[in-house]
Amino acid sequence: MKMIKQQILAIVCAIGVMLPIAGAQAETDKHARNLSASCAACHGTSGHSVGGTPVLAGMDKELFVAQMQAFKSGARPATVMHQHAKGYTDEEFELLGAFFAAQKR
């Protein structure tokens, strides 16, 4: 009986620890979604471009992050993207990359 109580306690504690993490994850996901929404003017809703710009929806995350870093450093020349890339942090590249990678093409 004592063991069961301890197990229940352990489970309750585990849930207690997991819930804030899940909450934090949901917040991060929403922040990533909100960040990415500003890209839509040129790259379409959720990265579904309807022409002229790359489709970001479903793009490999590593590829996305590498491109953004190349725009930021100047390694990849651009008309507009070097200016936007310089405005974001590396953490934000990761968030944006994860969001777009998770969108169905």
Partner: peptide, 16 residues
């Protein structure tokens, strides 16, 4: 090039 991109900007934003 930017003239062309401007047209695509309009297309994408109106769609969004």
């Amino acid at each position: 090039v930017e003239g062309t991109l401007a047209g695509y900007w309009l297309k994408n934003i109106m769609n969004d």
